[in-house]
Design a protein around this nucleic acid. Structure first.
Length: 296
DNA sequence: GCGTCCAGGTCTACC
DNA sequence: GGTAGACCTGGACGC
């Protein structure tokens, strides 16, 4: 199964856009540039693993189970499009940065798209796992969630757990098995709220709510503060927040402030001219060094 | 081996 | 609305 690649799209630089590709159920074979993901499957409950790779003009999806139904294949194709943001229109973003020499590399390298999960709920849980801890611990928590609560297929692939599966375990499980620490209570509350339909993260992608109001909605969820909400907004395609975290701040100090610390207001002022796209501009401005270090 | 620091922050109480 | 202090984990670091 194939998907057409959009203009200004780099398969590799989209995978490397941020750390999400390192989080289960994603796994990346860098020698063959094969991104594997195990998708939830509502119809049979048995998840489906798929290898994603690129050809000259297309993105290729290969299913580990050849008996995967056409209907499921089509659903997974839709998910892959979401993961790579195939249908996202970045024309305005590229036009905006074209006027600034410092940022023209983004378009040239086909960067600009942030890898994401097949659904908002997974991005939400993973974002909470990034708060107040090292990246190693984030990976550990997410791996535990997938290994201990995800469904397994006959190839050994495990999917990210559903809200229902996450709601079926208690706080002690999150503390002892997931090693989520103080986040454990947040996960129980969140999973229960999503499972009964009280909180609907998937609606966030479709709502017409202005960003500040949507951000307020997101921050009602325990464990979601300013950084987490703005990170989620970026993942659903709203880039008017910077999602400042310790990584972005320290990179900004090094690159634009002679290594000295400064206020968040100063950082915000620097990117103000990019309006609704400032969050995306800042992310790629700060992560250029990281992209340069990856295999290209 | 042990203690301390801190990392892709948030929450609550208090002012 | 702004701020201080508590909150879990685990790797890095110094001793």
């Amino acid at each position: 199964m194939f998907i057409n690649r959009p203009q200004n799209f780099s398969y590799k630089n989209t995978i490397y856009s941020h750390g999400w590709y390192q989080l289960a159920p994603f796994s990346l074979d860098e020698d063959n540039w094969k991104l594997t993901y195990t998708f939830q499957n509502e119809t049979s409950k048995k998840p489906v693993s798929a290898d994603i790779s690129e050809t000259d003009k297309k993105i290729k999806i290969q299913f580990s189970d050849k008996r995967t139904s056409k209907k499921t294949q089509e659903k997974i194709k839709k998910c892959v499009k979401r993961i790579f943001r195939i249908d996202e229109d970045l024309t305005e973003f590229y036009q905006l940065i074209e006027e600034e020499k410092e940022f023209t590399w983004i378009k040239k390298l086909g960067a600009g798209r942030l890898l994401r999960s097949p659904n908002v709920y997974e991005d939400l849980v993973k974002t909470i796992c990034t708060t107040n801890c090292s990246w190693a611990l984030t990976k550990n928590m997410v791996t535990n969630l997938v290994q201990k609560l995800g469904e397994e297929n006959n190839k050994g692939g495990k999917s990210f757990p559903t809200a229902e599966a996450m709601a079926n375990v208690d706080v002690d499980f999150y503390k002892e098995e997931i090693r989520a620490g103080y986040r454990s209570e947040y996960f129980v509350e969140l999973a229960e709220s999503v499972a009964i339909g009280k909180v609907k993260p998937e609606e966030w992608s479709k709502t017409d709510l202005p960003t500040p109001e949507l951000k307020k909605e997101m921050k009602k969820i325990k464990g979601v503060g300013n950084y987490a909400a703005e990170n989620l907004l970026k993942l659903i395609g709203r880039y008017d927040g910077l999602a400042l975290d310790s990584f972005l701040r320290s990179e900004f100090y090094k690159k634009h402030n002679n290594g000295k610390t400064c206020t968040d207001k100063k950082i915000e002022k620097f990117y103000e001219r990019f309006g609704d796209w400032k969050g995306l501009v800042m992310w790629f401005d700060m992560s250029k060094r990281w992209l340069d270090e990856q295999k290209n």
